[in-house]
Each structure stands twice: as C-alpha cells, then as structure tokens.
C-alpha cells in the first residue's frame, strides 16, 4: 500500500507541469524512502530524473516497493481539478490498476476523489551517475528561463561558455547574434538572487534551444537552478524540491 499526502496540491501540479510536455507517460517507482521517476523524452535527447523524498510529504507510507505507470497528460488533467492550497493525497494498493487521488479543501468541508487508470510501461533505466563536473553555475531560475527564451529567438542552439569568472550564453543565427554574460554575485539580503560559478576546467558546450524550453517549465519549482557542465557530456539542470529534486540531463550538440 502506498499513501502520500502533500501539504499543498501545488507541488505535484508544478512537478507534472514541468514534465508532461517532454514525457507523455512514465513509471513512478515508490519505495519506503519516497517516489522516483526516470524518463526520457520522445526524441531521446533529454532525460528527466525526479526524486520526491519521503520528507516532502506531510504523511507518507509505502509498505512494499511498487511501480505505478502514469500518463502525465491524464494526471495533469485530474490534478488541475484541485485547488493549489488543497491537501493532495495519492494512494494505491500493492497490485493496483488505478491511482487514487484525493483533494481536501482546507477551509470548506469538501473532499474530491478521483481514480486515474494506470498504464503498463516498459522502459529501460539508464545509469546516470555519479558524474564528474567541470563547471557548476547556480543562478536564479527565473533569470535562466529568461536567458533561454531570449536566446531562442535567434537560434536553435544555445552555446554556454564558462570561464573562471563568468558564464557566457551565446546564440548565433540567421537574423543575428546575441550574448548574455553573468558573473558571480553574493546578495546577502536576497540570497535567492545570488549567482555562483565554480570551475575546474573551462567549458564550451552547445544545447538545443527546444529542449531548454522544456527544461525551464520547471522554473516555478525552485527559485534557483544549478547547472552542472562537463566537457562532451550531458548538461545537468537541477531544480531542488523541499526534499528531493527534479533534474534534466540534456545531451549536448556537436559540430558535424
């Protein structure tokens, strides 16, 4: 039996919204420690890794490991019916063919209950970690989203060049070029506005703008995003949850 109660429905809403446009369905692997998902987008360029640790939940129990195959579009529709501030409880029996979803309004005496039909999903798991990292950038997630949107008007690719004291985001396209430089900054009054760059080795990598557009749909999950870059390796874009994370591993592009 799995039972997990979120303090606010908004958290699961944000997680599903961040994933559903690149992955149509995925397995939720539930253990006593929490819920994890690994899924690859249809073009197999972007890998999503989600961990919702037990401590994220107001209440959590999982007596036996179970795998729940979930259509994210369908889950999104059902979750959309609840208010952001509702308690949201998901539950499933050990051999369940459906996921039970309950919203509880915190003010009104109102409980809404839904069942989502589960899917049988046959998916390979990839071994992603741990990876070496040459450069790590942490910046406000909204700033990163704006950079990706702004650069996308120019080109299908975004080049990220990291040196000791700066990160350069550059796009070169038919209509022209653009570049945005960010430097480390410590903001004591507003720590969420700080930018950090740590570097073992300079980095010059290019990523598909289309996939970055999918990644930044996670912006509302966390005020900060951490980008880990390694030469000739997938970039890791991490949004922290209250306890856990949503990570995107994006394969870089190369000159032909």
């Amino acid at each position: 039996m799995l039972e997990g109660k979120f303090e606010e429905a908004s958290l699961l809403k944000k997680i599903v919204e961040a994933m559903k446009d690149c992955v149509s369905s995925c397995n939720f692997n539930c253990t006593e420690n929490g819920i994890s998902v690994q899924a690859v987008d249809n073009s197999r360029v972007l890998l999503i890794s989600l961990l919702i640790e037990k401590d994220t939940f107001e209440e959590y129990r999982c007596d036996r490991n179970i795998t729940l195959g979930v259509g994210l579009g369908s889950l999104s529709k059902i979750i959309g019916n609840g208010a952001n501030s509702d308690y949201l409880t998901i539950s499933a029996d050990d051999d369940a063919d459906k996921l039970n979803i309950i919203f509880e309004d915190k003010v009104k005496d109102k409980i809404s209950e839904y069942n989502l039909k589960l899917l049988d999903i046959d998916a390979d798991l990839l071994d992603v970690g741990p990876m070496d990292t040459d450069a790590t950038i942490t910046l406000p997630s909204a700033d990163f989203a704006k950079i990706c949107k702004d650069m996308k008007v120019l080109s299908e690719s975004l080049q990220i060049i990291v040196t000791k004291d700066s990160a350069l985001f550059q796009s070169v396209g038919d209509i022209g070029t653009g570049n945005i430089v960010i430097r480390p900054k410590t903001d004591i009054d507003h720590p969420e506005e700080s930018v950090t760059i740590s570097l073992d080795k300079p980095i010059d990598l290019s990523f598909g703008s289309k996939y970055l557009s999918d990644i930044i749909k996670a912006t509302s999950l966390s005020q900060k995003v951490t980008i880990k870059l390694t030469d000739q390796s997938p970039g890791v874009f991490e949004y922290k949850l209250p306890s856990g994370y949503l990570r995107f591993y994006l394969a870089p592009k190369f000159d032909e």
């Binding site: 073009s43 592009k253 190369f254």
Partner: peptide, 13 residues
C-alpha cells in the same frame, strides 16, 4: 550541429 541522443552517454542499467 549534430544532436546525439542521451543513450550515447549513459548505459542501460
């Protein structure tokens, strides 16, 4: 530019 897939970097478990 060429776009490799993620399977080019990670092995199956």
């Amino acid at each position: 530019m060429a776009q490799p897939t993620i399977s080019n970097f990670f092995k199956r478990k």
